[in-house]
Design a protein around this nucleic acid. Sequence first.
DNA 1: TGGGGCTGAATGTATAGTCATCTCCGCGTC
DNA 2: GACGCGGAGATGACTATACATTCAGCCCCA
Lengths: 200, 200
Amino acid sequence: MTRNRARYEEIAAHLRALARELPAGSRLPSEAELCERFGVSRMTARQAVQQLVADRLVERRRGAGTFVAPDRVPRLLGSPLSFSASMRRRGLTASSRLIDRGRIVPTPSEAAALRLAPGVGAYVLERLRRADGTPMAIERVDRPREVAELLGDDIETGSLHDAFERIGHTPSRAVAHVTAQRAPAEHRRLLGLGANGIVL
Amino acid sequence: MTRNRARYEEIAAHLRALARELPAGSRLPSEAELCERFGVSRMTARQAVQQLVADRLVERRRGAGTFVAPDRVPRLLGSPLSFSASMRRRGLTASSRLIDRGRIVPTPSEAAALRLAPGVGAYVLERLRRADGTPMAIERVDRPREVAELLGDDIETGSLHDAFERIGHTPSRAVAHVTAQRAPAEHRRLLGLGANGIVL
DNA sequence: TGGGGCTGAATGTATAGTCATCTCCGCGTC
DNA sequence: GACGCGGAGATGACTATACATTCAGCCCCA
């Protein structure tokens, strides 16, 4: 009577709880420790850990141990924040075509959304993302200064997410926007977005 | 000299290729067949298959076999298209709070984006999505008629993705929109969006 | 002809190892 | 004090096996 839950599910639940209450980077119990604590074989403990790895809650470093994954929010919301990485995982080749880039003067309402003073120019970057040639998404990034440091980078095929991390801005929270619409200031207040928050 | 690729990676690559060229629902080789063909033990073959399962490229049915997963595009782009399911997988409780809903008369440009005749009203649905109480995303759906059939549903906590599927519209492609901006008609042409395509 | 049970096939769970490879850290040497 | 080597510990890859559970289809009997 194993009832409804397999042993490894039980262990995985225990680890999930740990991973949620421990700060990012904390070390989790090793496979050997789990074996002893739960009285299972190593493959069973391993299966539990791998479930968390698949969910990106945890990272394993060979020879070192198992650690709570950093930047949990972007991983939580999933792939669009890192299109390239997501496609790579699936064995597809991510590519992108630059549709447009340059400088615009935003309309007053756009300026408000970007927290810019009216009349100040903004940089625009717009790309068509493809997975093995099939168009999947359009990305458009409007950023006051940061994009300037990206213009000229290897943007045709690269990952915006990585690029943003290189210059020290990790996307924090995301606003998923079904059907295009401006995100009013009210939304950002509800989400507690900081000035560096990138809005999706 | 295993070189750079583990046996199970090799098998996984082979299966990925199969899964991509076969139509959805096709049966893939069983674990036993993979064992024989690649000369590995069952646990190794299994590891390869489970990699594809984690990527949602494949579904396994106990007692039946392994099959190419249906509706590949929404799964491909990941979670925001199905927030509830994504959170469930991570052991979190997805909830949502209705921010606003009702009828609006879109501005001319909004009407164009929705492919509506000017002056015709549209239904708006706007929700704050939370994972275990932490606000994660704002969803806003503008649809001419379909949303009407959702108003009154169990929308406070439910899944939009599921709801859309119930009434026969499966989200097809997605436009990921970094920083809020309207998606001009040009974008949808580039992506080849149909009238039922839901824009993210 | 219809229903029911049997059975083979397939996946799910779990055990108990082996060998490889990597990382971290301490200890000894220079 | 700096450097390097080595060992302990950790994950990665893989094997061989056993039993449980579920599904689907076939055959037989009524």
